[in-house]
């Protein structure tokens, strides 16, 4: 065990614990704050693995923007105030989906790399940039198209009805 292994285990443990708290907490706003810890911890995991750029983008985009928007929406709707109780079926379904994704991702990793451990040398920022805007540019653009579609749909949902009723 190197010190990096210990560090990775510690950060991973924090991330996993925060993630569990985020999905089990009954108060939605607290769950959102635990999600901040989980996503920040994930950035820490990337950092320990040497992927500096990925870690910082994770922090900037997910923690700094996405969760802020989630919390903002919660404050706007007052959904954060009360406690939320989900049905038993709902919980089992969520657990099954979570377990399924875990098995799928874990299976893919094991199938691709086997069980033996290997040294990770995080790619430099230049390499990651060249890969994203070179090899993976089309999936990347496709993702932005998806976001654009979601944006247009959101505007459409927000503005439908206003036109017909006129300004009251």
């Amino acid at each position: 065990m190197t010190s990096r292994d210990v560090l990775f285990a510690a950060v991973g443990l924090i991330t996993a614990a925060a993630a569990v708290l985020a999905v089990t907490n009954r108060r939605v706003l607290h769950a959102g704050l635990w999600l901040v810890v989980a996503l920040g911890g994930l950035a820490g995991c990337y950092l320990v693995l040497g992927a500096e750029l990925v870690a910082l983008v994770q922090l900037l985009v997910y923690v700094g923007a996405v969760v802020v928007l989630v919390l903002f929406a919660l404050m706007l709707t007052r959904a954060g105030a009360g406690e939320v109780d989900t049905s038993v079926a709902h919980r089992w379904l969520a657990a099954a989906v979570g377990a399924g994704v875990t098995v799928l991702l874990g299976g893919t990793l094991v199938a691709a790399y086997g069980w033996e451990s290997r040294a990770v040398a995080g790619a430099s920022n230049e390499v990651i940039g060249a890969q994203i805007f070179g090899t993976w540019v089309w999936p990347f653009e496709l993702l932005s198209l998806l976001l654009l579609a979601a944006l247009v749909a959101a505007v459409a949902v927000a503005t439908t009805g206003h036109g017909r009723q006129g300004r009251s």
Binding site: G40, L59, G64
Partner: peptide, 11 residues
């Protein structure tokens, strides 16, 4: 990235 986390204090 780090300064963008500070907003959570205000929120």
């Amino acid at each position: 990235a780090v300064t963008s986390v500070g907003i959570f204090g205000t929120l």
